[in-house]
């Protein structure tokens, strides 16, 4: 049996008066990849943005219910969002290296917030993170170039390395490949496969094949509700809900 990492209970979310998530109960298991699929506007991004409380940073956004991470409710007032985000890293749809920083500084940006480190320690962390993000060999000679000078796919792996540097427990990937070409996409999928040895991964994707390729568990969202959650192979071969079947066979969405 896989070990439970995150559990959501009756998670609801709103933008102003518009409810976008309805009573979601879902489990995320440790060292597994969980994919959220569904048509655009189904609330899948909003869902994972609650895991590090990024949802609440948008004006008008509200949420209630529970999200239990390692036995603690992250919505608890005592759980500081800043601490939470150290445990739950996130990579966004578009690559977002900090434009005025070098490759090195981008990776070191997060770790510098939390502790003072010697140069050698910092070098070590940057190298480790870049290796984990499968980027080290490509950028070892251009560490002092601006992060923006890398290609789109490299920039996205740079952002992954930036998230890895602070050693989170969970990594959220919000459609990490949607702005990338197929070769870069393949590299990132490979990387996700490697990363799950050390991290728990939750990813949103609109690409069903991608979910089928990399995820252990898959959840199907529709209009703010979770229609079905199961082992990926089960979802794609023998879904129990008619709507899931319609979606994965391409009848809508």
């Amino acid at each position: 049996m896989d070990k439970l990492k995150i559990k959501t209970e009756k998670l609801n979310a709103w933008f102003y008066d518009k409810q976008v998530l309805f009573d979601i109960d879902m489990n995320v298991y440790e060292n597994k990849v969980t994919a959220i699929i569904g048509p655009s506007g189904c609330g899948k991004s909003t869902f994972i943005r609650n895991f590090n409380r990024m949802h609440e940073t948008v004006p008008g956004a509200k949420a209630d219910g529970k999200i239990i991470l390692d036995g603690k409710d992250i919505f608890n007032k005592k759980y500081d969002a800043v601490d939470l985000r150290r445990d739950v890293g996130m990579v966004f749809q578009k690559p977002t290296p900090f434009p005025t920083m070098t490759v090195y500084d981008n990776v070191a940006a997060g770790i510098k917030l939390y502790s003072r480190n010697s140069h050698s320690k910092l070098d070590e962390i940057v190298e480790r993170s870049l290796r984990q993000a499968a980027l080290w060999d490509e950028v070892r000679d251009v560490l002092n170039q601006p992060g923006m000078s890398l290609s789109g796919g490299q920039q996205q792996r740079l952002c992954i390395a930036r998230a890895l540097a602070i050693q989170p427990k969970v990594i959220l990937l919000d459609e990490p490949c949607s702005a990338l070409d197929p070769i870069s996409t393949a590299k990132i999928e490979e990387l996700i496969h490697e990363l799950k040895k050390d991290y728990t991964i939750v990813m949103v994707t609109h690409n069903m094949q991608q979910a089928a390729r990399v995820a252990d568990y898959t959840a199907f969202f529709l209009l703010g509700e979770m229609v079905e959650f199961d082992i990926t192979t089960k979802i794609f071969t023998n879904p129990s809900d008619k709507r899931t079947e319609d979606y994965i066979t391409g009848r809508f969405g």
Partner: peptide, 19 residues
């Protein structure tokens, strides 16, 4: 999305501004 990236690293508002 640059602000979001900084916030997702756990930056406070001040650090977010700096980063």
């Amino acid at each position: 999305n640059l602000r979001e990236s900084a916030m997702a690293l756990g930056a406070t508002k001040w650090e977010c501004f700096k980063l």
